[in-house]
Computed example of a mutant assay.
Amino acid sequence: MSDLILHHYPMSPFSEKVRLILGHKQLAWKSVLIPSVMPKPDVVALTGGYRRTPFLQIGADIYCDTALICDVLEHRQPAPTLYPEHHKGMARVLAQWADSTLFWAAMGHTLSPKGAAAMFGSQPPEVGQAFAADRSAMRNGMTSLRAGDAASAYRSYLRRIAHMLHEQPFLFGDAPCIADFAAYHPLWFTRVVNPAMAGILDTTPGVLAWMDRMAALGHGQPAKFTATEAIAVAAAADPAPLADEAFQDDHGVALGSRVTVAAESFGTETTEGTLRAATRTHYTLERHDDRAGRLHVHFPRIGYVLKEVRA
């Protein structure tokens, strides 16, 4: 069975979501540290353009977006499950809210002017400037919450999470599920990456206790790996055979067409390739890179835009 290779960087909140899931499932994985800002030539060699963090590599298969990565890890190691049978739909819906609405409120507070000054104040000015410029480019016209509005929303969301935890250790009962991991990582960024802004968490001690339980899951069994080694793994492998899943054509674009896929918002760089699968839940593009060889790059349908490349 091919190794799990996670391309990430330490302060990435979405990476922490996946690292904790790897810990929850006690999986071994290879850790490739990537830059937090562009340029990312080794990333693009594998993804074809997608630059959000993290992404998961298994041989010559590249999985983009943590929603899809979670499904891949669930298939790899079904127990303990991320999707409890009686709460599967609700857990996924809450996770999607946490990865979007909660995340942006948390970032608006934690990376407010005051937060950014605290986070980057001890570093050379160009470090903070490069990070701010990079993230501004990724937002690409998105409406950002002002710091005060973000803090107000964040406080309300923390109280709602606290209510869910009132008489149970995790959001849906006695064990963590996908909703817990999605709700945890924006709060982790506030508490761990920029603790100067973590006072906002103090009014919800039940949330802090839950965060301690989540952190105790650990990160599984990581091993250091380099981007050069990861690219060599891809070059030496063939993409895994695609599962026999029905083609769901919602765009009038046939399999075998030249297409692009990009995120709907935030980090909208496109990946171009040949459409090899469009199932109920995801797209698969085949592409070739001079260093990494033939690759299959996979995206979830939700949150991504498919377009045909017309001559």
Rank of each mutant, 00 (worst) to 15 (best):
E167M: 04
K40L: 01
D180S: 03
D212Q: 15
T66I: 13
S31R: 13
F266N: 14
G252D: 09
E229H: 02
T281K: 00
M90A: 15
Q123D: 04
A230P: 15
L158F: 11
H296M: 07
M164W: 11
A60V: 14
G173P: 05
I161V: 15
G141A: 09
W188Q: 05
L242W: 07
I5Q: 11
L82K: 10
P176Y: 06
I302R: 00
L242A: 05
R213A: 05
A311C: 05
A45L: 00
G48V: 01
M107K: 06
D244S: 04
Y9E: 07
F181A: 08
R159M: 07
S265M: 05
F266Q: 06
P300E: 00
T143E: 15
R310N: 04
E269I: 01
Q26L: 02
I58H: 00
A133N: 07
L145S: 09
S36P: 08
F14P: 11
H219T: 14
R155A: 14
A151L: 15
M107S: 10
L94Y: 09
R294F: 08
E85V: 13
L165V: 04
R76G: 00
M164C: 12
H8V: 10
W104R: 14
L217S: 12
G108E: 10
H185A: 01
G206N: 10
S2H: 09
G256T: 02
H166L: 13
V253R: 07
G267W: 03
R19A: 05
K307C: 13
G141F: 09
P124I: 05
H166V: 13
Y283E: 02
D180R: 14
A292F: 09
V259K: 00
M211C: 11
T190K: 00
T270A: 15
A216K: 12
Q168H: 08
W210P: 05
P84D: 14
A234T: 02
H288Y: 14
R291G: 00
L275D: 03
L22G: 02
A262N: 13
G89L: 15
T284E: 06
L94G: 03
H296D: 13
A311M: 04
H185N: 02
A182Y: 01
M164P: 01
L56P: 07
L165E: 05
S12G: 12
C177A: 13
Y157V: 00
G218I: 07
T270Y: 01
S257M: 06
G23L: 04
T81F: 06
D99A: 08
A235Q: 13
L46K: 12
I62G: 05
G199S: 12
T260K: 14
T281G: 03
R146Q: 14
L22E: 00
P124D: 06
D71L: 11
M164V: 02
T281Q: 12
H166D: 15
H251G: 03
I58E: 14
D71F: 03
T279K: 10
Y63I: 15
R159C: 06
S122T: 12
T279P: 10
R135H: 14
P54H: 03
M119Q: 11
I161N: 03
R92N: 10
S156W: 01
F299Y: 08
L27E: 08
M214G: 04
P78S: 04
Y50E: 04
